[in-house]
Structure formats: C-alpha cells, structure tokens
Computed example of a mutant assay.
Amino acid sequence: MIFGYARVSTDNQTLDSQIEALKAAGADRIFQEKVSGAKADRHELKRALAVLGDGDVLMVTRLDRLARSTRDLLEILDRTSKAGAGFRSLTESWADTTTPQGRLVTTIMAGFAEFERSLILARTSEGISRAKERGVKLGRPFGMTHHQRQEALARKAGGEPVRKIARSYNVSPSTISRL
C-alpha cells in the first residue's frame, strides 16, 4: 500500500496541491496535517509511520514536508526501513528507497549526516574544555548566593523543615535538599 504524507506549516496554507500530487502518484491513503515542521510532535506523521508494514511505501511531495533536518529525515527513513517499507519523494527523485540507486544515495547521505554529527560533537567538546580551562563556570547559575546556601544548611541542620527554608529563599524544596 502507498501512504502519502502532506503537511503545511500554517492554517493559511492549503494542502490541496500536495494531496492532488500524492493521489496522482498512486497514494492509497493520505495523512495530512497543518503543523510547523519545527515541532517534533507531529501526530499524523506518527500515525503514518505506525501503519507502515512490509512492502508499503511512504510518499511525500517534497522532503521539507517530511523532515526538519537531515538527522530527522534519516531517523524517519530508519523507522520506515525497520517497518519493511520504502520511501519516495516526488520532487527529489534520488530520495526513493524502493530502488537500488535510491538506497545507495540515502546510505551516502546517512554517512554524511553521521560524519557531520561527529564533527559537531568534537567541536562542542573542545569548546567546553577550553572554557573550563579559562575558568568559565558551566551550567545553570545558582538560585541562591553562597551566603544564603550556608545559612540554609545551618537552618536545615537545626531541624527546620526543608519546605519552610525553600519558601523563605523563593526556591524549590529540591534545591535545598541538593545542598
């Protein structure tokens, strides 16, 4: 079975041209939604991926209708592949995992994405190390001053309830407990 997925970002846009193209390409069922591609929680896409089975095809008019990033695209393609289904984009003819050439190009793209991710991780790690060497404090700043923390610890040691201490400093009880 061929499942189509159509998405537009805003209510002002229309799905009509995508639906028409998907039907013309042979889609048996079309999942459609009006939601920003930046949102990770796209219910109709989840439903489409959930119904995919062996031999099915997930089809879109353009890749940008499906994925927010290369990484997102590769994750969706991985889920599609694990379901035993294929994937096809009508506009990007290279993005067709139902053909050997399409699988090759998709594999190459996955390699590039993985390489890019490892470069980002290496640069981030290097940046964090340099910042630590310069004495930069990383993470969220304390909600209390050093003096307030010492005072709170003394009050806690004196038997005062954690909730009462937290209220007096306008922090959560877990902040006091972590001290």
Rank of each mutant, 00 (worst) to 15 (best):
F3M: 06
G4P: 09
Y5D: 05
A6S: 14
A6P: 09
S9K: 06
N12T: 14
N12A: 15
Q13A: 10
T14W: 00
T14N: 11
L15C: 03
S17F: 09
Q18A: 05
E20T: 14
A21Y: 00
K23F: 00
K23Q: 11
A24Q: 13
A24V: 05
A27T: 02
R29C: 12
R29V: 14
R29A: 12
F31C: 13
Q32V: 11
V35N: 04
V35E: 02
G37I: 12
R42I: 12
E44A: 10
E44R: 11
E44D: 08
L45V: 11
K46V: 08
R47D: 13
L49G: 08
L49V: 08
L49I: 10
A50M: 08
V51R: 11
V51S: 06
V51P: 03
D54N: 13
V60G: 09
V60E: 08
T61Q: 05
L63Y: 01
L63G: 04
D64M: 03
L66M: 11
A67H: 09
R68A: 03
R68S: 04
T70R: 10
T70H: 06
R71Q: 04
L73E: 05
L74W: 03
L74T: 07
L74Q: 14
E75F: 05
L77I: 12
L77F: 01
R79C: 00
T80W: 01
S81W: 01
S81L: 04
A83V: 03
G84F: 02
G86M: 06
G86W: 03
F87T: 14
R88L: 07
L90Y: 02
T91P: 02
E92D: 15
W94S: 09
D96G: 03
D96I: 02
T97V: 04
Q101H: 04
R103Y: 00
R103W: 00
R103N: 04
T107I: 00
G111M: 08
F112I: 15
A113V: 06
A113H: 06
E114V: 07
R117L: 10
L119Y: 00
I120V: 13
A122L: 10
I128W: 01
S129G: 05
A131N: 05
A131Q: 07
K132R: 15
E133C: 05
R134G: 06
R134H: 09
V136W: 01
L138H: 11
L138K: 09
G139E: 02
P141W: 05
F142I: 12
T145D: 09
Q148R: 05
R149Y: 00
Q150F: 02
Q150A: 14
A154V: 12
R155K: 15
K156F: 02
G159K: 09
R163C: 05
I165T: 07
I165L: 06
A166C: 01
Y169N: 11
S172E: 10
S172G: 15
S174N: 10
I176A: 08
I176Y: 09
S177C: 11
R178Q: 14
L179D: 06
